[in-house]
Design a protein around this nucleic acid. Structure first.
Lengths: 167, 167
DNA sequence: TGGTTTTCCTACCTGTTCGCTCGGTTTCCC
DNA sequence: GGGAAACCGAGCGAACAGGTAGGAAAACCA
């Protein structure tokens, strides 16, 4: 009579730091543009094919990046997209913020807007530290990432074999 | 004729590392329990009042924590909740994972399940580093946090005044 | 001048999650 | 047995995620 098998843990497979498809695609597209820096504009269609992204969806993302001032574009026969600034001056954080807003929020608000009482008083400090840490990692530039030359600090973090294991 | 005022940036106020109400409440409740360690059980109602959380909503969260083995409970007149293990052995990450699943995911998958091609090849390493960094910060224990005795590394991160400013 | 290519824009769609609320059912202790 | 709690599940409105569809506007070509 064991219907108990799948008890407990009402499957919540959402993660808190969730890099959405949108953000992931944006970064990958930006990396393609970085790799093709001063080699002329890249067409959305080509990026979509290379990175296996829905073309129309990607167009929307590139539009956000253009409005955010990260890329520029040109229509017509030999048009396309290119980075508005050198790849070395654009960080992954810039890209994500551009298409998704703030990197870190707590209950929809930015950490400095919160206040905690009682034993939770230091919680704010923790969220701030978390944000600083995320900013630090995502501060890596498109140029570094596209060239596979990550800063030592990042490499050190990823070098720990434990970092590659799931909970 | 300036209707342009609020152009660009089609208001996406969601953040990528979003600590949900659920997670925030869970940690705060856990901190109350940590502060009341070996002082008898705490009622959900009392925690809710202290931390200004909807009582019924909190009950659901505490239920998750019980099923996850983080807290224990007792019904009846002088019942309530208490931590199942010493506060020094429970991390904030434990609490968040318990009520919300994995800390970090990319497009709904855990980082090690992904693969990238072309100029995006090092992106996986970056996500792994990000996860390691988040794990590190959230590895702080309830005991440390409730006592406002954060590890030096965390304090150092939060000490930078820039960490407190928004983008 | 017209045709092609590409970006650009607006609207829509389906499923899921978030943050709750409500109403009850057990279990515990006195 | 009577209160006081913890438990359980359903439901609900709003927002978001991850797209799709269809066309208009610009740049270039012949």
């Amino acid at each position: 009579m064991r219907i108990d098998a799948d008890r407990g843990a009402a499957v919540r497979n959402n993660a808190r730091m969730r890099i959405s498809a949108r953000a992931d695609y944006a970064v990958r597209a930006a990396l393609q543009l970085a790799a093709a820096e001063d080699a002329g504009p890249l067409k959305a269609e080509a990026i979509a094919a290379d990175q296996d992204i829905s073309h129309k969806f990607l167009e929307g993302i590139l539009g956000d990046m253009r409005r955010g001032g990260l890329v520029q574009s040109q229509r017509g026969g030999n048009g396309g997209y290119w980075l508005a600034r050198p790849a070395a001056t654009i960080s992954v954080a810039d890209v994500i913020r551009c298409v998704e807003g703030p990197l870190v929020s707590v209950r929809g608000e930015r950490p400095p807007d919160l206040s905690y009482t009682g034993p939770a008083e230091s919680l704010l400090t923790l969220w701030i530290a978390l944000r600083a840490s995320v900013r630090d990692v995502l501060g890596v530039s498109l140029a570094e990432l596209a060239a596979a030359k990550l800063p030592a600090g990042i490499v050190a973090l990823a070098d720990d074999p434990e970092a590659w294991t799931n909970p």
